[in-house]
Design a protein around this nucleic acid. Structure first.
Length: 451
RNA sequence: GCGGUGGUAGUUUAGUGGUAGAAUGUCUCCUUCCCAAGGAGAAGGUCGGGGGUUCAAAUCCCCUCCACCGCUCCA
């Protein structure tokens, strides 16, 4: 893993954020190749989910929503309450309620330290599993708080979105009213979300801000099992299509105590990283939890009307979540190879060509004005269609290796023969083999390679 | 959040109180008809940050930040 982090920084995929000030824990910035890779992955997903289907609508919601959204969703319930968490089953309880129920004692307004003391002295246990292992009393703040306008105004408090789902639910009515959708249908969204988790650590893997791609698939309540397995299969296929090693992937179902408050069934696709199996994507059955709560809190009817049967009901949802930032790291880990070439180490990222940040690099075999001129011309033309790089520094070996490290699948080299017969060599990243091809056929050649 | 380890050039690192070094990468020039080749030269360092001890601190002490490994948890 250290090798990947080192490569990521050396080759500008990602690196610690605001480093001149000592960095910020769990914040990373993406560099040139990192962003290109990330956006290619996003495009791949959009093609699969939006372009190739007819039943999923794309939206992009505001990062800051009306704060009531997060109250209705359950993300801020107990936000201002002092809670204890059970170390065994992770159940969270309001500390004042626990004390009042067990000891019949009014503790309203007591400071947190006092509450912790009372719980410890009286050896109070978890109301769910009975464990004695409770954390100190504290305020958990999952969501980042911010202010709209004047900080002193209490009504100014707002939250940065902690998941994409709520923005999707906020668009539900709009989509149903305008997009001629029929159940089953999905609403998709991609973008950055923020988590103010108390427990940090795990570096690039657990960050304050991360990119997600996700959708809610709205279904009839009695059909959830059917669509759950449908999306389970689709997600697996997508992971394979991205080029990930199947042997390093597995499904894992969450135990009841692990599941989020809204979910009735959750499964993760995990990837086997150098530091163990870790969650990459998730699939949750959220029932009608969110729409029903939003109906309750907002007073707006969010039921769906089946135009053919006249049936009126609150749809249930299946939620496939694709961690984009995590997928980027997974792709790097999965495609990193060290090979022995002529007794020297070759580091190469065997990334799926469709995802590669740079598709083609063009260089003159030697430093020569004529070769350079033709290379430039070819480079300029290919750039219209692909992300390309031109290079003429060092020697041919160095240029190939440099491209290997950023996963460029093809290198076009211009030599003296090129000047005579208008052909160039194309070198394949994975096999290191070359083939000579006429300039007229270059476009056709790459069209086939990247189709 | 708790416990352990560590932080020196872009990267990998040597340096245990006395003038900050190497390899590699980067840049320039020469050479070279295909895989980090050869030659010449150059740039690159708040020694993570702050404070203290000392004639003198990368080195010793305190605080802090960051990373890594366990425990815990998420996507």
């Amino acid at each position: 893993m250290d090798k990947i982090i080192s490569l990521a920084k050396r080759r500008s995929f990602f690196y610690p954020s605001s480093e001149i000030y000592g960095g910020l824990a769990n914040a990373w910035d993406f560099g040139h190749y990192g962003v290109l890779l990330k956006e290619n992955i996003r495009q791949f997903w959009l093609k699969k989910i939006i372009q190739e289907r007819d039943d999923i609508i794309l939206i992009d919601s505001s990062v800051i929503l009306n704060p009531k959204v997060w109250e209705a969703s359950g993300h801020v319930s107990g936000f201002n309450d002092a809670l204890v968490e059970c170390k065994n089953c992770h159940h969270r309880t309001r500390a004042d309620h626990l004390i009042e129920d067990r000891l019949n004692k009014k503790v309203e307004g007591l400071p947190i330290e006092e509450l912790t003391k009372i719980i410890k002295e009286n050896k109070l246990t978890c109301p769910k599993c009975g464990s004695k292992e409770l954390t100190d009393v504290r305020r958990f703040n999952l969501l980042f708080e911010t202010n709209i306008g004047i900080i002193e105004d209490k009504k100014s408090k707002a939250y940065l979105r902690g998941e994409l789902a709520q923005g999707i639910f906020m668009s539900f009515k709009q989509v149903v009213d305008t997009m001629r959708v029929k159940i089953p249908f999905g609403i998709a969204s991609t973008g950055v979300v923020f988590r103010n988790e108390i427990t940090l650590g795990q570096g690039v893997f657990r960050t304050l801000q991360f990119d997600l791609m996700e959708f809610e698939y709205f279904i009839k309540p009695d059909e959830w099992e059917k669509y759950y397995s449908y999306w389970q299969e689709k997600m697996w296929q997508m992971a394979l299509e991205l080029g990930l090693n199947e042997k390093k992937l597995r499904w894992r179902e969450h135990e009841e105590f692990e599941r989020s408050h809204y979910s009735k069934k959750t499964m993760d696709i995990e990837y086997q990283f150098p530091f163990g199996w870790k969650e990459m994507w998730g699939l949750a059955y959220r029932t009608d939890f969110d729409l029903s709560n939003h109906m309750k809190y907002s007073g707006v009817d969010l039921r769906y009307i089946d135009k053919t049967t006249g049936e009126k009901y609150v749809p249930h949802v299946i939620e496939p979540t694709f961690g984009l930032s995590r997928l980027l790291i997974t792709v790097l880990v999965d495609s990193y190879y060290e090979e022995d070439v002529n007794g020297k180490k070759r580091v190469v990222l065997k990334i799926n060509p469709k995802l590669a940040p740079i598709k083609i690099a063009v260089f003159p075999l030697q430093k020569d004005e004529k070769l350079k001129e033709l290379s430039f011309k070819i480079h300029k033309e290919l750039k219209n269609k692909y992300n390309c790089e031109f290079d003429d520094s060092g020697n041919i070996g160095k240029m190939y290796r440099r491209q290997d490290e950023i996963g460029t699948p093809y290198c076009v080299t211009v030599d003296y023969q090129s000047l005579d017969d208008k052909t160039v060599t194309i070198r394949d990243r994975d096999t290191m083999k070359q083939e000579r091809i006429s300039l007229d056929l270059l476009n056709k050649y790459f069209n086939e390679k990247f189709s």
